[in-house]
Design a binder for these strands. Structure first.
Ligand SMILES: [Mn+2]
Ligand SMILES: [Mn+2]
Ligand SMILES: [Mn+2]
Ligand SMILES: [Mn+2]
Lengths: 219, 219
DNA sequence: ATTAATTTTTAGATTTGTCTAAATTAAAAG
DNA sequence: CTTTTAATTTAGACAAATCTAAAAATTAAT
């Protein structure tokens, strides 16, 4: 059984592993809001527990056991987010902080019954896939909005940034999950994108477009 | 903002205060599963924070601020128990441990929305009153089953022991919340009570009867 | 009022997770 | 291939919460 703190490290390492095979000390420190020296200490501990593979100065990666544990935390985080939005009427920008706490509640029965109560949802309020009981899930192949070209179109199926200010901004300009969008122009000056959905046109900065995930539609 | 641990101390002191005005170090230690020396340390800390009144060797009591904090924890504990039973189909003997964790989740919005989602329940699955948003609740005047005499009758409205083995036992012999019962005899030999409800007669040991709370009916 | 038993507190150590400052190692630049 | 820079690790300290063993205070018993 892992501590609250250990679970946070495993989860962060898991998320950072999406991009690179081996995760650096400084990257973990930044995500977890701590100092590199503290990360080194924890990596040694997690390594001794058989949860991460760690070689001095070379970074860390999750073992099978560590990945299982991390996925369980992610599953709980996303199920609780669905609960908060679907059942308690929270907005999608209000749930992340509370889910950060709820994800550490220890009770296998609770997770399974919550999952059932919610109707076995496949994605959370930000479009992220929810691992099932066995940790399995389909990691959809997203394209970032910023990578689209003029005349490309598709559906908004996720966001890779969960902060409240960011999500509130998307809400305000109408770019929420499920919206069909099309890129009509890319501004020469600042690289921002001109997007059309329904009959509305909005301008999206590169910084914002970076975190919007699109499922491209063809033809 | 209190730590997880501080909240547990406040809650225990609150519960122990029901019986006596000032709470002893050893009593807290026993409830919280720790050593008296640790309790002394914590009492000093809570005293400095203005949450308890504490005089060396004299025991402790909650300040108004401490009681407010304790009641907030109790409110959360009981609301979560209602959620687990009413929405997730847990049995009344399965919820206490999980609620011990959930009661420490920090989010005012979550508590209020959960309360609303549950329909503003007044009592939890064990018959305990749920404090409202402002910490107010009616503490009903219960009579312990063990204090009844032959021919006394009433309704089971609560239990003062939340452990799974105890609650499972009550379930098995049919003594659940809301049942109308009558004492038909008290056994000379061991003081156990002969109880009748509907058309069933059951024998209840003194140890079991001690924790069953009755609302007496007259005439 | 002494003595004995119980309760409570202190003193000093331990564990978990963190930090700062200094020392190493690895990577980048020249 | 040195030198410089950046990343990482060690060493030593610290805060929170706990423990054991010993000392002190309170309460109960003679
Ligand atoms: Mn989240
Ligand atoms: Mn999410
Ligand atoms: Mn309970
Ligand atoms: Mn209860």
């Amino acid at each position: 059984m892992q501590s609250f703190t250990e679970e946070n490290y495993l989860k962060i390492i898991y998320h950072l592993s999406d991009k690179t095979a081996t995760v650096q000390t400084n990257a973990i420190a930044e995500q977890i809001q701590t100092k590199p020296a503290s990360v080194t200490d924890m990596l040694k501990k997690l390594s001794e527990k058989g949860l991460v593979d760690y070689v001095k100065y070379q970074g860390a990666s999750l073992t099978a056991k560590g990945r299982d544990a991390a996925i369980k935390v992610v599953r709980k985080h996303r199920l609780w987010e669905v609960f908060l939005v679907d059942k308690l009427n929270f907005k999608w920008d209000e749930v992340h902080e509370v889910a950060e706490q709820l994800e550490h509640i220890k009770s296998a029965a609770l997770v399974e019954r919550l999952d059932s109560f919610l109707g076995f949802p496949k994605i959370d309020p930000h479009g992220d896939p929810i691992p099932d009981k066995n940790g399995k899930f389909e990691d959809a192949t997203f394209t970032k909005l910023i990578e689209l070209s003029v005349n490309d179109f598709g559906t908004i199926t996720g966001v890779s940034e969960h902060s409240s200010p960011y999500l509130k901004h998307l809400e305000k300009i109408g770019l929420t999950l499920g919206k069909q969008i099309k890129v009509v122009a890319i501004t020469e000056f600042d690289g921002s994108l001109e997007i059309i959905y329904n009959d509305t046109t909005v301008n999206v900065s590169r910084e914002v477009a970076k975190h919007i995930l699109i499922t491209k539609l063809h033809e």
